[in-house]
């Protein structure tokens, strides 16, 4: 699944603030919130209902939203949520604060690269070059998917915002591939110094 493969590891989207932002446009029930999230805010990686309702409960507990039960004919009552003044203040604070960009200093690929170097020769079949080749393969597969998705969206009339999301995914993968080239350079240099490479 596109979403599953491309999801930024570690970076978690604030469902809380997404919901506060949607409710700032006016009261809505859960289903409407879900549709707006999927359609506009998180278009390529749908959230499940469970996540949305759990977050709404927490927001209500913290006094950021309130709900009203609206009776419906022949259907279960629905909860309509709206923003409290505290909720609006929290939203405005969040919107004006820069997002925390992860420096990713506990990077998993780096960890594998280093460990493969340490274990090379001790554990059969382990080699940093093989680790990096597998990473490169996976990154190109993902980049191919992003490219295909962009192509399918592009021909006409796709919302440009979705294109921006795909661009971000693409640029990250391109940067990662560039970094893998650096790793290769380091490996090659190491190998030419130590002929057992």
């Amino acid at each position: 699944m596109l979403a599953g493969r491309l999801e930024a590891k570690g970076a978690s989207l604030s469902v809380k603030h997404a919901l506060l932002g949607l409710l700032a446009r006016g009261p809505q029930h859960g289903y409407e919130l879900k549709a707006a999230l999927d359609g506009e805010l998180v278009p390529l990686s749908p959230l499940n209902f469970g996540q949305i309702y759990t977050t709404l409960e927490r927001l209500e507990r913290d006094g950021l939203v309130v709900h009203q039960v609206v009776a419906q004919e022949e259907r279960p009552d629905k909860k309509v949520f709206s923003l409290t003044p505290q909720g609006r203040a929290e939203l405005e604070y969040w919107l004006s604060s820069p997002s925390s960009l992860s420096l990713d200093l506990r990077n998993e690929t780096f960890l594998k690269f280093m460990l493969a170097g340490l274990l090379r020769g001790r554990v059969p079949g382990v080699h940093p070059a093989a680790v990096m080749a597998a990473e490169r393969r996976a990154a190109f597969d993902s980049l191919h998917e992003v490219a295909r998705a962009r192509l399918l969206l592009d021909p006409d009339g796709s919302p440009p915002e979705v294109g921006l999301l795909l661009d971000l995914a693409s640029l990250r993968l391109e940067a990662f591939l560039k970094w893998l080239d650096r790793c290769d350079e380091v490996l090659t240099r190491g190998a030419s110094g130590a002929p057992d490479g």
Partner: peptide
């Protein structure tokens, strides 16, 4: 091979 395990059609349906 750059197939990513999924066809373009599948990605399109998802989108």
């Amino acid at each position: 091979r750059l197939d990513g395990g999924r066809s373009a059609g599948e990605i399109l349906r998802e989108l």
